[in-house]
């Protein structure tokens, strides 16, 4: 497959954002804010960097993707549906009875490598996958997406130290650092300090970027490929919660609420 250009990826990211908003609107519930902030990185992973096969979702040499911040499921579902892991129409069934698109990812959905939704746990599973792939001498990598609020969970740091101990240079964690959590700003609810510094002292190679900037994300992927350290990689991506939808951007209230009809229509205009 030819690598897509930055412009093409930006177009795809916008398409995924429209799908996210549509899915959450149709479901009547879900988490638009954190799905929109992570959409650029999810796009870059699935449409540029990762080695996956929509026709063979359990291919053992595939790269793994762990959405540790599982509430951003609509972003991952939008990518999987667009790529053809399942029929794209399925995106209209989010959170409905019998749907493979559960409120939070589960393994009945093709392309989901581990269930998530309970914060802090996905990254531990990603570490386990990275250990197994290394043990089998596979070149496949593990991509994990964490929230900055999620980094309040102690388990994240247990996993971080394990990844460094086992020299998991095949693990790439992206922190979707949008600064907001359910109850308020991360700074107000429980400050996490500099996540870049924290991952550094935990033994990771850290890249700090604008996580909504496609060029920067792709450059970081190149830097990671060129890295010769055996350290696990952490990309702290500074992002905007609700990115792309004017009235959702940086508003705490859009963490886990579905837009109403007029809001939905406005959101689609913003993302046109």
């Amino acid at each position: 497959m030819n690598k897509k250009s930055v412009e093409e990826l930006k177009t795809i990211a916008k398409d995924l954002r429209r799908k996210i908003v549509t899915m959450v609107y149709e479901a009547g519930s879900g988490h638009p804010g954190g799905s929109l902030s992570a959409a650029d990185f999810v796009t870059a992973c699935y449409f540029y960097e990762m080695n996956v096969d929509p026709k063979n979702p359990t291919w053992e040499d595939r790269d793994r993707f762990v959405l540790s911040k599982g509430h951003a499921a609509p972003a991952q579902y939008a990518a999987l549906g667009t790529l053809g892991f399942f029929p794209e129409e399925t995106l209209h069934t989010l959170r409905q009875e019998g749907s493979i698109l559960q409120g939070h990812p589960n393994m009945t959905c093709p392309g989901i490598d581990i269930p998530t939704g309970s914060l802090g746990q996905g990254i531990a599973c990603a570490v386990g996958m990275a250990i197994a792939l290394k043990a089998d001498k596979k070149s496949a990598r593990v991509f994990a997406v964490l929230g900055d609020g999620e980094c309040q969970e102690g388990e994240v740091w247990e996993s971080a130290q394990t990844a460094a101990k086992y020299k998991l240079d095949n693990l790439i964690a992206f922190v979707d650092n949008n600064g907001l959590q359910l109850d308020g700003s991360v700074e107000e609810i429980m400050p996490v300090g500099s996540l870049a510094d924290k991952f550094k002292v935990f033994g990771w190679e850290v890249f700090e970027i604008d996580g909504n900037n496609m060029e920067e994300i792709l450059k970081t992927f190149d830097s990671i490929k060129n890295s010769t350290t055996q350290k696990p990689k952490c990309i702290v991506g500074h992002t905007v919660k609700g990115k792309g939808v004017s009235f959702m951007e940086n508003v705490v209230g859009w963490h886990g609420v579905a837009p109403k009809k007029d809001q939905f229509e406005q959101a689609l205009k913003d993302l046109a």
């Binding site: 996905g122 531990a124 990603a126 570490v127 386990g128 250990i131 197994a132």
Partner: peptide, 24 residues
């Protein structure tokens, strides 16, 4: 084939899950 995660049980459980998804 031993992963010793130190005193971090919750992490141990998650790592075991990750290993199992890769056929271990």
């Amino acid at each position: 084939r031993q992963i010793n995660v130190g005193i971090a049980e919750q992490n141990a459980a998650g790592i075991a899950a990750g290993l199992a998804t890769c056929g271990k």
